[in-house]
Design a protein around this nucleic acid. Structure first.
Length: 472
RNA sequence: GGCGACAUAGCCAAGUGGUAAGGCAGAGGACUGCAAAUCCUUUAUUCCCCAGUUCGAAUCUGGGUGUCGCCUCCA
């Protein structure tokens, strides 16, 4: 069977294209990271999980991936927030960078190869702006430096709009010093009391867009493969990045532009300005982070995804279905021997794997990929009804399960916490006592033990092979 | 006002020309001391509406309706 190649939807061309990295076997990707002035909310978590999954899949199919995600640690919102709290802006940013990592780790998001910060890259940024000025794409006015959009004939190619369209819809007051209303700041002159850095144009700090151009150029060079972020970054942020980088280098900035859809609440975008956001850690408090990750991947990354508690409950149940199947598999694997009935399960594993890859190759269709995991769960559960099971088949099912779930960043194995040896010993004892009661038809005692354990979050399940327990 | 996206069962959600995946919820059955978990069966003659192209359309075209997003900081 011929494996279909990876197709990705490219915002730049507005269609799916075959993914061909610039350098064979290697993918360089840059994803816009957060401005660190607060804990991240669920909407911020989506691109983290989505692009982490894309990265994992690219690695799974054999690419060596270089993944860069920045932190915006110099910004108006950080300055304002720091002022309110009476601390230094960079100190505030550093605090929320730490908090960010806690959240990202909980979601099982792998660290980027580099997490560059604006404050560490002033020279790169200043040099980038200098080059733009030398080439005539930027101009200075009283210590501010602006990018001249009229100099870049391709301006608007990513968002699919012309300069005239954009001006017709402009909702912002025009700064008369700019040559064109859409010219944007590369360097902003310092106001009193603001953090600033020396530059050829005086004390100041970078505009928002230049950091990503400068840092992606530094770590990934010209024409890297994937640039990702939320859909709301298409304009103006990514449009401006393209203008800056392509004017500076004369080469395309990135080959594929990928954007995730929004999280909505009651069909409206979750955003800080609307105030309808939930912090990730509030949600992780009620449902665990794995459930959140599963929920985020249960819809295609470009579609809007509505949020409420019920949807997370559904995700929780779905994930539990997979975990139950996996744990039952694990419970049987030790006592399994050799049997000739394992072929169908082995074939099913291969089929599921093919389906999974086919789904992911189609623009990272995680919803369909998850459906293939449900198919595997059913195949496994059905097979486990057999009296005799084949150890090799179970082992293959186990590795297939773990491998594919791992691509999605999901762990099916319950982590043992605390003194697991002791817990296991105690559970064995309790189960033995209950077993004795059941044998004597003392169901009152047996049910009492089961009910009380349930209150502690431990589920007992009686099977023909004995009683299993799991933590809910 | 300009630009764009989406509309599939009670809910969520795949499917872009060949006769509607999957999950949750519901119903019935099996298994069980009873449960739980699991398995089997069942739940959209039909994919927002209208017209068209086609042997054939949820999928393509045109029109309409509705919802959302971007054009300002936002993931």
């Amino acid at each position: 069977m011929e494996a279909k190649k990876l197709q990705v939807y490219n915002t730049l061309t507005k269609r799916k294209e075959e993914f061909i990295p610039k350098e064979e076997g290697r993918v360089k990707m840059y994803v816009c990271g957060p401005t660190t002035y607060n804990f991240i909310h669920l909407g911020n978590a989506r691109p983290l999980v989505v692009f982490d999954t894309i990265r994992r899949y690219l690695e799974y199919i054999g690419y060596k991936v270089t993944y860069i995600q920045n932190f915006t640690d110099v910004d108006d919102k950080i300055i304002n927030r720091a002022r309110e709290e009476g601390i230094e802006p960079l100190q505030l940013a550093a605090k929320y960078i730490e908090e960010y990592f806690q959240d990202a780790d909980s979601l099982n998001v792998k660290r980027a190869d580099v997490h560059p910060k604006v404050s560490d890259h002033m020279n790169d940024i200043i040099n980038f702006i200098k080059k733009l000025m030398e080439k005539g794409y930027a101009y200075e006015v009283d210590g501010d430096v602006y990018f001249s959009v009229r100099q870049f004939s391709d301006y608007g190619k990513l968002s699919g709009r012309s300069l005239d369209d954009l001006q017709a819809g402009a909702r912002v007051e025009v700064d008369q010093r700019k040559k064109d209303p859409l010219d944007f700041a590369l360097w902003k002159k310092a106001k009193p009391g603001e953090p600033s850095w020396p530059s050829p144009w005086g004390e100041g700090r970078p505009g928002w867009h230049i950091e990503c151009s400068a840092m992606s150029y530094k770590y990934l060079g010209e024409e890297f493969d994937i640039h990702g972020g939320g859909y709301d970054l298409v304009f103006p942020h990514h449009e401006n990045e393209i203008a800056q980088t392509e004017c500076m280098s004369g080469k395309p900035m990135a080959r594929y532009w990928l954007h995730n859809g929004f999280i909505t609440i009651n069909q409206e975008k979750m955003s800080k300005s609307l105030g309808n956001f939930f912090l990730l850690r509030e949600i992780v408090d009620k449902f665990n982070a794995q459930v959140v990750r599963f929920y985020l991947l249960s819809t295609h990354y470009r579609s809007p995804l509505d949020f409420d508690d019920e949807k997370l409950q559904v995700a929780q149940k779905g994930l539990e279905r997979l975990k139950n199947s996996y744990s039952q598999l694990m419970n049987r694997i030790g006592s399994a021997g050799n049997s000739s009935n394992g072929e169908t399960l082995k074939e099913a594993c291969q089929k599921v794997k093919n389906e999974f890859v086919r789904a992911m190759n189609d623009d990272f269709n995680t919803a369909l990929a998850i459906a293939s995991l449900f198919d595997l769960a059913r195949d496994v559960n059905t097979y486990l009804k057999e009296k005799e099971v084949d150890r090799d088949a179970l082992k293959l099912a186990k590795s297939t399960f773990a491998e594919l779930a791992g691509v999605l960043g999901l762990e099916l194995e319950e982590k043992q916490e605390g003194d697991s040896k002791l817990v296991e010993g105690l559970m064995d004892l309790i189960i033995a006592v209950r077993q004795k009661a059941r044998k004597n038809k003392d169901f009152e005692t047996a049910d009492y033990l089961r009910d009380e354990l349930k209150k502690l979050g431990i589920i007992l399940e009686d099977t023909p092979q004995g009683t299993n327990w799991r933590i809910h």
